[in-house]
Design a protein around this nucleic acid. Structure first.
Lengths: 129, 129, 129, 129
DNA sequence: GTGGTCTAGACCACC
DNA sequence: GTGGTCTAGACCACG
């Protein structure tokens, strides 16, 4: 598991992002119990403090809550999760388009590039699977 | 000029990115002399050491070269610059698509979202100007 | 420790070179943790920023990697290190031969001179030890 | 002529070295008049101040002398030049051997490497000419 | 005037 | 504790 982290960004943010994505994809479901901090830390090859921080952030985002002595659980509030999905989507798209425009790429180029890349990655995955 | 920086990312990276974008947009041209370190530092409201670091990075990317006692100059190698443009484009698109797919968004959603956002930002700019 | 530096060359380069040589000689091994920046700075009688720069260079050379909050570690990639050894060897020899030839020394002179010097330095060391 | 200089070393030293080599090779002879500062600067694509400094150094090394209103002349003292040759040779060999030994290369490797490199460069030159 | 290096010291985020 | 960034200010060699 080591070496899978991008050195330019905090590890805890990268793990947070990964969990959010799993939530958004539905791989982690509402009400589900998350692994214990120790377990997760072991699995990620990371310091428990780091996971602690991730779970704290999840709590502040009202996506998970920790119950003393029982562990952390994903919220049962489905609406909260679907909002997370939309927020994530909008935010990622918005930032991307802004960056591309600032770099001087024109709309045609952008759409075409994204379209191409989608096909490339889809075909790669098809082969991989 | 101060206060224009995003606190979550190092200043030198933000300036580097800004310069790269100006290069890619053609606002800075091949062979052109860049402002001296002190000048740029003043202009950006930043310590000269910070600019020094930016110029160093540009040199390592083979985008600029500094001539001692004379200042820094953008490379005259046009091919190098057009490669920068393509690299930047590909890299930004690739990362974006990967992120979106990992979050479980389907191609249709992605294309549609980008398309929409492009229109929104374009119209905003039209008003602004 | 201070005063051991050659005033004509930047300190950070001299330290970098020293570390590279220790690596090449096998005195520093793959996977090994390097001293923390502050530790090394103290040991070298030098400002921590200077060491930081050295470690940065090592990282760019893909010889070491730094893990946040943990310190810097020599790469575990043995191949990378043996390549360093060969690169260093070839580069030093190549430059030397080129310099000598440019100065108009003929092959016989060069070989003989090197041979002699090797004996001289070996015997000196023998006495010293 | 631009771009032929190594950015890590002062230009004036590089030119000085080049001249010394031409002297040692006999391409520049005793008593010969050196080009005027302006001429040389133009030829090298370099600031006249830089050449000025080179000529000063040559004077301090007692290899050339400048006669007011007449220009700079190589010394007529042949012995001075042959000593320069020997000094250069010894110094270059000495430094090389020291560096190689410090990097942990053994005498066999060194001799073999130099021998090889001599052949390589000689054959290259043969083709080139 | 220009870049390059170095120091001292500070602050921060991360592990 | 660790590394990363930034500032302020100094000095130097170079062109």
């Amino acid at each position: 598991m080591r070496g899978k982290f991008d050195n330019t960004k905090p590890i805890y943010l990268q793990i947070l992002q990964r969990l959010c994505r799993q939530l958004v994809r539905g791989e982690i479901k509402t009400g589900q119990k998350l692994p214990s901090i120790r377990e997760m830390a072991l699995h990620m090859g990371v310091n428990p403090n780091t996971i602690q921080r991730v779970y704290n952030e999840l709590e502040q985002m009202e996506i998970a809550e920790t119950r003393r002595g029982l562990g952390s659980y994903v919220t049962e509030n489905e609406e909260r999760l679907s909002r997370l999905r939309e927020d994530l989507k909008r935010e990622q798209i918005c930032r991307f388009v802004k960056d591309m425009r600032e770099s001087g790429f024109n709309p045609g180029e952008i759409i075409e590039g994204v379209d191409n890349e989608l096909k490339i990655q889809a075909s790669k995955e098809a082969k991989g699977v």
